[in-house]
Amino acid sequence: MPVEKSSLSPLIPDGDRLKQTYEDLESRPGSSCIMSVGGHSVLAVNLLRWDRAPDPVDWNKVGSPYKHAARRKVSFPGYASIGSSHAIVQATCNTRTAYMSFVVDFSGDRVENTSTGYKKLQRFIDDFVPQETKKFDCTK
């Protein structure tokens, strides 16, 4: 899925070769994408589309195992816990009985383990998630 260069470039280090591996899941609607530079993974995203209402989640606690993770406001209908290197996202579909879940792992020397380091990952999520929800007929 194409994203704005400004949302992806802060996550990707300068280096050898950028490689992207994208795989559609066979068991249910969803996909997995891994981006690597010079053979080292820098960004991994797993997403699933669910045709049911989401289970209750305490968004203030879901990210607690990760550095600087907290509930963040996002640019799309849904919820997110975003930290400096990890995010858990739930995007609401157009119907109350469907949603999409995203798990995003960011690694490498571009990770900023600071209280404001989450902003890099959030820019990407705010750009990427709405495009993926459209692709999986979750939103229009």
Results as ranks from 00 to 15, higher is better:
M1K: 14
V3P: 07
K5A: 15
P10T: 03
P10Q: 08
P13T: 02
G15F: 08
Q20H: 05
S27Q: 13
R28C: 04
I34Q: 14
G38A: 08
G38H: 11
G39M: 05
H40K: 15
H40M: 12
L43K: 01
V45E: 07
N46M: 06
L47C: 02
W50K: 12
W50I: 02
R52N: 09
A53F: 08
P54M: 06
V57R: 11
D58I: 01
N60I: 00
V62A: 13
G63V: 04
Y66R: 08
K67F: 10
H68S: 05
R71S: 08
S75E: 10
P77M: 04
P77Y: 04
G78Y: 03
S81Y: 09
I82G: 08
G83R: 07
S84Y: 02
S84R: 07
S85K: 05
S85V: 01
S85N: 15
Q90F: 03
A91K: 00
T92P: 00
S101H: 11
S101N: 11
F102T: 00
V103W: 05
V103A: 11
F106N: 05
G108Y: 12
S115T: 10
T116M: 09
G117R: 13
L121E: 01
D127K: 14
P130M: 09
E132N: 04
T133I: 08
D137S: 14
